[in-house]
Design a protein around this nucleic acid. Sequence first.
DNA 1: AGCAATAACTGAACGGGGTCCAGTTATTCC
DNA 2: GGAATAACTGGACCCCGTTCAGTTATTGCT
Lengths: 204, 204
Amino acid sequence: MPSTPSPRPARGRPRRASRDILEEAAYELFLEQGYAGTTVDQIASRAGVSRGTFFNYFAAKSDVFWTQVDDAVAELPGYLAASDPSLPPLRAIGEALADVAGHFGPDRVPWVLNQYEVVGSAEEVQASAIRRLTRNELVLRHFAAARLGTDADALLPRVIATTAIAAATAAVLAWAGAGPGRGALEPYLLRALAPLADGFERSS
Amino acid sequence: MPSTPSPRPARGRPRRASRDILEEAAYELFLEQGYAGTTVDQIASRAGVSRGTFFNYFAAKSDVFWTQVDDAVAELPGYLAASDPSLPPLRAIGEALADVAGHFGPDRVPWVLNQYEVVGSAEEVQASAIRRLTRNELVLRHFAAARLGTDADALLPRVIATTAIAAATAAVLAWAGAGPGRGALEPYLLRALAPLADGFERSS
DNA sequence: AGCAATAACTGAACGGGGTCCAGTTATTCC
DNA sequence: GGAATAACTGGACCCCGTTCAGTTATTGCT
């Protein structure tokens, strides 16, 4: 279920491009020239389309990396809603994150993680990653606040949400850094989240 | 002890500007026009200096926000080095972060936190914040790895470092959001970090 | 007093990302 | 064969961040 399955709008000029086409063109160029050394113009023209059209499909150059990840993470609210209401918040969050992680595997690693050196220290890419984490921090925070019956701006839901995301991020990076031979993502995730769940249950 | 105390270089043309002067000019304009609506040109010219000079003092427009914070956080490695070697990593980190937090108080809140609505959703500001957090994640991670005797790329030091920073961030935001009447930052910090320390000690 | 050395500032240019928009092109429905 | 619809084009614009050659203000040496 791709991010924009181009549902054939039945009217109007047909699409010449797609996220997938632009993504592939971008990845080729990134490998050849690096991320910073590649312009949006080049990506678009390799995809056979004009610069303006690129921005019809991606809001920013750096967004090219996140289609697969966004698709997987889009399921998070559903997983949360479906979780056992008797579970402590961080346990429920852990299970939902594990469900999201199930979309990836040793064979299916997001491009951006495998090609970290190509991207280099491009800060806008980091920023685009953070944008996404922040969005989901909000989701988790409201979920935690609802379960706890507290205000979403209170300290505890904030801490639960941000540390859960931080632990998940650490798990993903350790997993990606493990190179070929890394197994599934889920075990990393569970190991990273376990101490948090323990800690929050003990203090509450 | 400001970030660049202009130590009077004793030779060469004297400085016409300073970080402080540019900062004040920037804050005025941000209040009048918002962050995104203010150009570096305007900041520089209000400070009586040219655009190029602005970039002699700040590497980026968004860096204007961080002089006070950077000064405080610069002490972190020293605090860590001075910590009791028998403490578990997260306890030591917690104390060091509390020491850093001691630089701030109810009366001394970084501008960017008090004027969050002015900055709006300017993503480059968020990115500039993350840049700083990432730098310190590295410091904490190596510290934790050294104490644990493991590789800095292993999962556990990663999780310890990122969750410590996440919890601290949550504490700062909750503190800033508490408005006037918030007390000191440290209590927030300690409450945020306690569950983590508990959790990591139980599992190790 | 004059002259080198030093360091900050100026101004102009350039590349690139992101936005906007008016105009064009390709398709379907009637 | 028209509307209506929707994607694409191309060019203009703003602003950030970088670079660099040239100018200006100061100190120290002779």
